[in-house]
Design a protein around this nucleic acid. Structure first.
Lengths: 233, 233
DNA sequence: GAGTGGTCTAGACCACCAA
DNA sequence: TGGTGGTCTAGACCACTCC
């Protein structure tokens, strides 16, 4: 019967409705937590829970002393799930495999060195991997690995049957990173690995990950055509 | 000096450290809130705040009665900010303009009708808009609008100087939607509007938005080359 | 200085669900 | 059915920041 929420979710729903109805217009201040608590007949903490949730969603802006206002130009926030490729493939019922194409120690280009925050001329591991779904190319991976983040005398043999990413997740972990998505024309090696013509439109994911104070890895993933990143707002 | 967090953030940091150190391995149960509250010498609500935050980030899985466990294969969650195009452009110091290229009433293709959940043959508004940054093409927009979501006798003249999106945000609002990103070869009209060759790699954003029970709009945005979607993990 | 949100506490009850 | 997380309360103190 009643799909009506209770407790703090009910308060969130009511506040949201007032914003939508423009009872509280964009840019306008809304009552204080204490006033709302009196109005709704609940504790201030309950109002706080509701307003904090809306603020995390970007609909409200809150500042001590200043109070709470409706965001003028709400920037929509979407949460993306970025799965490990193995799971992404296996979730569609296909078998996953990773093939290590090349692995060598060499100095990265200037931009890559900067991206990883290592001195120009530092020698890193450079790995090229092809990810396969049901024996067909799924994504081409181009990765730089900072040896300083790895155990001493690490070599690619240590990976065993794991992909580089899986090995890192299991043995290194990481603290934070950044990620960017773009559309690009396929580069030569990527096109060959994915079985495409040069210049084909590919979806590219670029990630850099860091441990406490040093870069771990920078990776460029070129996805096969048809790849879509999807989420709910 | 001390950048050490206090309160619930300190607890979150400690729990995170234990997960990273594998004191608590993936898949393993961790102590109950009550036990942790005793260990940290704080109220259970404080532990709850910390664990809830980690669970929202996908690192913990919590179920009543079952308890809390470390996620086996953490799916990384990234929060994307999706700004209104005007802001996106103006944030880079360029002037923004939108040019309405075409506006007509017609029936959408089968897939679009399905996407919007309208009967096949329903007549919708179809608008093509070019977004400009400093007088140069920024993105080509292809949008279907459900008249049922608009005021009676609505016409594109009502937009005034606003882009369709801005008008909708101001006058209709919306409840939820979904969004998808992909890389595609530029279609004919898009290529012409953006000043590209056909087949050029473009970044495409596709959005569908809904009000309570009916679709409002479906939009396809083709971004000019160089467009990147960026976020921090 | 004072008003507002941010957080903590101690206790309570409830909802869910594995055993 | 009992254990666990989810939430609420009433009150308190603190941190921030506008005035």
């Amino acid at each position: 019967m009643s799909g009506d929420p209770q407790g703090w979710e009910a308060i969130r729903a009511e506040v949201l409705a007032r914003i939508r109805r423009r009872d509280w217009a964009p840019g306008q201040m809304i009552p204080t937590e204490e006033e709302l608590a009196r109005e709704f007949g609940c504790a201030r903490a309950t109002v706080n829970r509701a307003l904090r949730d809306l603020a995390e969603g970007g609909l409200l802006e809150r500042r001590r002393k200043a109070g709470t206002r409706v965001t003028e130009n709400p920037v929509r926030k979407a949460t993306l799930s970025i799965p490990v490729i193995r799971q992404e493939v296996e979730a569609t019922g296909r078998t996953y495999a990773a093939r290590l194409i090349r692995a060598e120690r060499r100095a990265p280009s200037e931009p890559v060195a900067g991206q990883l925050g290592v001195p120009a001329g530092a020698v890193l591991w450079h790995l090229v991997t092809l990810h396969l779904a049901a024996s067909r190319p799924h994504a081409a991976e181009n990765r730089w690995l900072n040896p300083a983040a790895l155990p001493p005398r690490w070599t690619p043999e240590r990976l065993g049957t794991l992909s580089v990413n899986e090995w890192l997740v299991r043995h290194v972990g990481f603290a934070w990173g950044d990620i960017a998505f773009s559309a690009e024309a396929a580069q030569e090696e990527e096109a060959a690995l994915l079985g495409l013509d040069r210049g084909a439109a590919i979806f590219v994911t670029e990630r850099t990950t860091w441990a406490e104070d040093h870069a771990i890895t920078a990776v460029r993933l070129a996805h096969a055509p048809g790849y879509r990143l999807h989420t709910v707002l």
